Computed example of a mutant assay.
Amino acid sequence: MTTVEPTLEHPSPTETRPTTTPTTARSALSSTLEKFGLPLLFILVVIVFTILLPQTFASSGNWRTIATSQSVLAVVAMALLFPLVTGRFDISVGANTGLCSIVAAAIMADFDLPVIVAIGAAVLVGSTIGVINGLLVAYLGINSIITTLGVSTVIGGIVQAYTKGIPISAGLSPSLTGLSNQLFIGIPVLFVLMLIIAAAVWFVLEQSVPGRNLASVGSSEKAAALIGLPVRRTVLLSFVAAGLLAGIAGVLQIASQGNGNPQVGGIGFMLPALAAVFLGATTIKPGTYNLIGTVIGLFFIGTAISGLSLMGVEPWITDVFNGMAVIIAVGLSAVFRRRRTGAAAIGQ
């Protein structure tokens, strides 16, 4: 009696197996669109407005205006990034920026001190507000949204009490107020300064130990604590970084507008920065708050608003656009964050 041993069938040399399936291709396309959908949409918006408004939108003057006007908001958006990376929310960044703008202007106009002292005072005040927020949130355990909303309201009252609602414009250093008109190799100086700040923020968030600690806390506090990370101190430092950047943004706001404006810092001022941060979390690194995506998101919004304004749309359309951008951006970033971490909530 003979037995037949089972053998494994091997494909003949002429047979080929597909290396990709339609599902894999669709998945790769979906991943690519998630990462680069916003930059592609940005390019499309630029092309459309350039075709519709070739004489105005496509002019170098308009691009310089966009670069200058969005530079301050870009720094505000960077300030928002730090607490958000840890899963917290700092609503007071806008009000803090307005306060620091008034502080710097008052130091120069009311106390007749040099611009360098004004800059230092603004950064110190902004950082101090960050320390207060961080202590309340990290060490007292108060919800970050409630905490920073309250701090923002207090700041607004202080600013109004000091200025009586009147901008501070006399007695400011020309070396600061003149920055908005200065160019460096044809590029607005404020935009160059913003890029330098952005490079520093990128390094801290992406390449440094503190940045990795922030991301670890935001991903899972329990896991971060188990591996020995100082969770409370990390959260505190995220708010301090936000306050420091708000102080810098306040100084740049004077350079951009030429005065210390007590109206700066309201929700209308914050909306584009908020939308930019959440839009940024839908691109480049979907589900993760990241600097490059944030900057792209901000200039996408600024460019779209510039195009709409040049087309002569009613002012309320700009408000609607900003509001819708925030809603859509928050929704999309929540979806991507849920995919990455299993939880979409922020603002502990």
Rank of each mutant, 00 (worst) to 15 (best):
T3R: 11
V4G: 00
P6E: 12
T7M: 11
E9G: 07
E9V: 14
P13K: 13
T24C: 01
R26L: 15
A28G: 04
S30Q: 14
L33W: 10
L33E: 01
L33K: 02
P39K: 11
I43D: 01
V45W: 02
V46R: 02
I47V: 15
V48E: 03
F49E: 04
A58H: 10
S60R: 11
W63G: 11
R64G: 10
T65D: 15
A67W: 06
A67F: 12
S71D: 06
L81Q: 02
T86Y: 01
G87D: 04
F89S: 00
I91A: 12
I91F: 14
S92V: 04
S92H: 03
G94H: 02
T97V: 08
T97W: 07
C100M: 12
A104N: 02
A104S: 14
A105Q: 04
A105Y: 05
I107T: 13
L113R: 13
L113V: 02
I116A: 10
I116S: 10
I116Q: 10
V117M: 10
G126Y: 02
T128P: 01
I129Y: 05
I129Q: 01
V131N: 07
V131C: 09
I132W: 01
A138D: 06
I142A: 12
S144M: 08
S144N: 07
L149S: 04
S152W: 04
T153F: 14
V159S: 05
Q160F: 14
G165M: 11
I166Y: 12
P167C: 11
I168F: 09
A170Q: 12
L172H: 07
L172A: 10
S173R: 01
V189K: 05
L195Q: 03
V201R: 00
W202E: 02
F203T: 14
L205T: 01
E206A: 13
P210Q: 09
G211L: 06
R212K: 14
A215I: 04
S220T: 08
S220R: 03
A224Y: 08
A224E: 06
A225G: 09
A225P: 00
L226K: 12
I227P: 00
G228P: 06
G228N: 06
R233W: 12
L237R: 03
L244K: 00
I248K: 03
A249W: 08
L252R: 00
L252C: 01
I254A: 06
S256W: 07
G258N: 09
P262F: 09
V264S: 10
G265S: 09
I267F: 12
P272I: 08
L274R: 00
A275P: 03
V277E: 01
F278R: 02
L279K: 02
A281R: 08
T282N: 11
T282Y: 03
T283P: 05
K285A: 13
K285I: 12
N290P: 04
L291A: 05
G293M: 09
V295R: 00
I301R: 01
G302Y: 10
I305W: 00
V313C: 06
I317F: 14
D319R: 11
V320N: 01
V320Y: 02
V320M: 15
I327C: 08
A329S: 14
V330D: 03
G331S: 14
A334C: 00
F336S: 13
F336A: 14
T341I: 10
T341F: 10
A344Q: 07
A345P: 00
